[in-house]
Write a protein that binds this DNA or RNA. Structure first.
Length: 391
DNA sequence: ACGTGAACTACTAGGGTCTA
DNA sequence: TAGACCCTAGTAGTTCACGT
């Protein structure tokens, strides 16, 4: 039927001096020859398959009547030499591809980034996303590389417009740009707008001087405002990573506050612990999780007790073990030794009062700086002399 | 305290060739 | 056909040196 329709169109259409007709298959070939016998023009018919496979001088073209089989050249001489060959329009792309970014000097489109970034760059991007305002030297420790390598990685990320660096209090510090935030948010299938609202490092007023008051992101503002605290937490984790590497263990996982919090039900109310960091230290096949609190504000006994309360609730349940597979330590570091002393006393009282025992380790800045997080820098409520974290 | 070019090492995946 | 071997390209990271 399809052959009939097309041949009818051929007959009823414009006047041809001749035609080459291709038909699929033997049966259609016979059918077409019968239909074209009365055609008002010369034509030759050949099966599609033969046309596709044969060369120009293969004898495959038949007239509708008669048994002669002609080659393409012979058939064309019958079709009439006068007139003009149809000229195909040269193919033109309907849409011309855009110039490559490299050619125009503009930055690459967002969707190329994930393919273009190297694994080491993505790791750096993640770390800077987790710890905004991180110092270059802390970043080096967390990544486990030399300063030259940090410079290479951040230069590349900066080139892609994914992070910005700021010189604050004499040190170079990194934050993600809005483009970097968007990249991570999209990767995590999270809201880009929400990420910007929390973590943007763009100034609210581009004219005004930079500073924590002039930041778009709520969390980045808070972290910059309390830079001493922010830096102390980074410094602790960096020192821990360094020290772990040098003694054969490994800081396997570090989570920033927004992933370190744990929510749980206690006496039918939703409660939570909100540490400054959560991490897992791996040494000789054992994994030791820990929460970190870097404490500056809990100075009075009542604020110290208030600080402790969420942890006492959390550790009164089975949740710490169920959440982590091992009981996480609660590491609490103070700016000065005296506060640590007070805290230990308050902690002892609170544990007796509530009957909950906390795997508490307490230290202070000077002890940590002198001996390091894995050194003899930690005291417990039952041990006045400083021991190691696992002691 | 930091930035960066040059030259280097180490390691890996993938491919090709040869041989028992 | 498996295995030994070699080559290449790419990535990761270091060291040194020379700046600002």
């Amino acid at each position: 039927t399809a052959v009939s329709i097309r041949i009818r169109r051929l007959r009823e259409g414009p006047t041809y001096s001749g035609a080459l007709v291709l038909v699929p298959g033997e049966i259609r070939l016979r059918h077409a020859r019968r239909l074209l016998r009365q055609a008002p023009f010369i034509c030759f018919i050949a099966p599609e398959r033969d046309v596709a496979y044969a060369s120009a001088d293969a004898r495959i073209w038949r007239a509708p009547s008669g048994s002669a089989v002609l080659s393409l050249e012979e058939a064309l001489t019958y079709l009439g030499a006068e007139g003009e060959w149809a000229v195909e329009r040269p193919p033109v792309r309907s849409t011309v591809p855009r110039l490559l970014a490299a050619a125009t000097g503009t930055r690459e489109p967002d969707w190329l980034l994930l393919a273009r970034l190297k694994p080491a760059e993505k790791r750096s991007l993640d770390l800077i996303g987790d710890w905004p305002w991180v110092r270059a030297d802390h970043l080096a420790a967390l990544l486990g590389v030399e300063r030259r390598r940090v410079s290479q990685l951040t230069a590349s990320l900066e080139h892609h417009d994914l992070l910005t660096d700021h010189r604050i209090e004499g040190r170079r510090r990194f934050v993600l740009s809005d483009r970097g935030l968007a990249l991570l948010a999209r990767r995590d299938r999270a809201s880009v707008a929400a990420a910007r609202k929390r973590w943007s490092a763009e100034p609210l007023d581009p004219e005004a001087p930079r500073g924590w008051r002039n930041l778009r992101g709520g969390r980045t503002r808070q972290l910059l405002r309390h830079l001493v605290h922010t830096e102390a937490v980074h410094g602790f984790l960096a020192a821990l990573a360094d020290q772990a590497r040098s003694n054969g263990s490994e800081l396997g996982q570090v989570e920033p506050p927004h992933r370190a919090s744990r929510y749980f039900r206690f006496q039918d109310r939703l409660r939570s612990v909100q540490p400054d960091a959560f991490g897992v230290l791996r040494c000789d096949g054992r994994a030791q999780p820990f929460f970190l609190e870097w404490e500056r504000r809990a100075i009075r006994p009542s604020t110290m007790a208030a600080k402790l309360a969420p942890y006492l609730r959390y550790y009164s349940s089975k949740r710490p073990l169920e959440d982590h597979g091992a009981i996480p330590l609660v590491l609490i570091a103070f700016e000065d030794e005296l506060a640590a002393d007070h805290f230990l006393r308050v902690a002892r009282e609170e544990q007796v009062r509530t009957g909950v025992s906390l795997p508490l380790r307490v230290s202070d800045r000077s002890a940590l700086e002198a001996r390091g997080p894995l050194g003899y820098a930690w005291r417990t409520i039952s041990r006045a002399a400083a021991g190691s974290v696992f002691g």
